[in-house]
Design a protein around this nucleic acid. Structure first.
Lengths: 88, 88
DNA sequence: CTACATTCGGGTAATTAGGGTT
DNA sequence: TTTGTCCTAATTACCCGAATGT
């Protein structure tokens, strides 16, 4: 696996997540995503980390339509579950 | 590989379906539509999947109305079919 | 050096999530 | 069973001027 430590700008990450670049900055400020700062203060993000966040819980299970059984299974957090701090 | 399609916000999908954003959120929670979560917890939907759901009603003719018989037999499937888009 | 786009900061609306109810 | 509306809290989007990167 290529570590792919290519650095992405806030605008690139924002386009991938369909959010505002300012939002990506807030993620970095909140510690939800690692960031590298340039000497001038701008942020850069690792592509590998961004991709991991994108596919973290997107297209895993896709099988349904089989009976409407309310499967109260355990919360299967597949993959690197980011510590959700926002839970009231 | 990279799906490379645009992401839609719940409000966008709700406007396409003429429903409340809350309903779209319920669809995602029920697993009827794939969703990508931002680190902040908000959902984003793939435009290709949404369009497939919007126009996918025409290729399968399933005479199925709103549930009047609440008899959930073994073959009671309320759905147009497995719209699996996960091809890796 | 100038020119342009982007990204800093903060501050304030708009949207979304979640639960419960009709 | 599905959808719509109520609420509160969190997240996100757009506003500005100033600084940074190419």
């Amino acid at each position: 696996m290529d570590t792919g430590d290519r650095l992405l700008t806030p605008g690139e990450v924002a386009a991938l997540f369909r959010v505002d670049p300012k939002t990506v900055t807030r993620w970095a400020a909140a510690g939800r995503i690692g960031s590298i700062r340039t000497p001038g203060g701008h942020r850069r993000f690792r592509e590998s980390e961004v991709r991991a966040l994108l596919e973290g819980e997107g297209m895993l299970e896709e099988g349904e339509e089989m009976g409407k059984s309310r499967n109260m299974g355990p919360t299967a957090s597949t993959g690197p579950g980011p510590a959700n701090a926002g839970m009231y």
